[in-house]
């Protein structure tokens, strides 16, 4: 059993207008095999939390700590965090011109596993993973995320999730921009990953609809840079009917 432990983390971003604090004291422990949903309105900082865990250079952690199985994460480079077992499925996957999906996946899998997969088994492994997510094998030849539709990008993220098999996966608004069929396919991919791996999952979402497919063990409400309420799966239902307004200072 492992755990991803976030303890009283504060983080800020520096823009032309100065430094702004976005994460204002977040503590959260995710055990292996559990799924946590972090829900909140736009601009609450929930995606920033995902980036901070992954180590995006744009954000600076000003205090607090994050550990993975007891090991300090914040002192690791972005790639070291990934090799330690963290995975971030991005809300806006980045286009990498001139780099084919197959080359990218193989390079990534080689880095994560510490050795190059054998060619024969690798091609089959990749094809099977693509088929499970209903990704056209021709995608392997395309440049990473270039000209992909919103749904294709998200499926590609989940493809990486299944091939890299991390200890902890953060899914940042993976449901956004997906139609019902794509949402179901992507969710099945995440559920298959959970069953096979006993990984912890942090699901960041604005809407409850993905929670109909991926069942959370815990739900946290994120507002203005911190977790303002935590509960079980039923908390999501309350949010669905009552909205986030109840958590704004004006209605307190």
């Amino acid at each position: 059993m492992g755990s991803l432990v976030i303890t009283d983390v504060y983080a800020s971003v520096t823009t032309d207008e100065g430094e702004f604090e976005i994460i204002k004291g977040v503590s959260l422990t995710i055990e292996s095999g559990t799924t946590h949903a972090v829900m909140g309105p736009n601009g609450s900082g929930k995606s920033t939390l995902a980036y901070v865990i992954a180590g995006h250079p744009k954000y600076r952690v000003t205090s607090g700590e994050i550990t993975l199985d007891g090991v300090d994460v914040l002192s690791m480079s972005v790639d070291a965090r990934a090799r330690a077992g963290l995975f971030l499925a991005m809300q806006y996957p980045v286009e990498v011109p001139g780099v084919s999906v197959s080359n990218f996946l193989r390079t990534s899998v080689t880095a994560i596993r510490g050795e190059a997969p054998k060619l024969r088994t690798w091609v089959k492994e990749m094809k099977d993973a693509m088929m499970a997510l209903q990704i056209d094998p021709a995608f392997a030849e395309r440049n990473v995320n270039e000209g992909f539709s919103g749904g294709e990008k998200k499926r590609h993220e989940i493809l990486q999730l299944s091939l890299l098999s991390p200890k902890f996966a953060i899914l940042d608004e993976t449901d956004s921009g997906l139609d019902v069929d794509a949402l179901r396919t992507v969710s099945e991919g995440v559920n298959a990953f959970k069953q096979q791996s006993d990984a912890g999952v942090l699901l960041i979402t604005h809407y409850t609809r993905i929670l109909q497919y991926i069942k959370p063990d815990f739900v946290h409400v994120f507002f203005d840079g911190r977790i303002v309420k935590s509960g079980g799966a039923d908390l999501a239902n309350a949010l669905e009917s009552e909205g986030y307004e109840q958590f704004s200072p004006a209605s307190a």
């Binding site: 972005v78 965090r81 990934a82 980045v94």
Partner: peptide, 28 residues
């Protein structure tokens, strides 16, 4: 930097990520 972050977030060390991006730049 976003390309580098994306590749690094997949475990690819920075120098290798840079080389991938340059290769891709020319491959086009």
């Amino acid at each position: 930097d976003e390309q580098l972050f994306y590749l690094q977030a997949r475990g690819i060390p920075e120098h290798q990520a840079r080389q991938l991006v340059v290769r891709g730049f020319f491959a086009e």
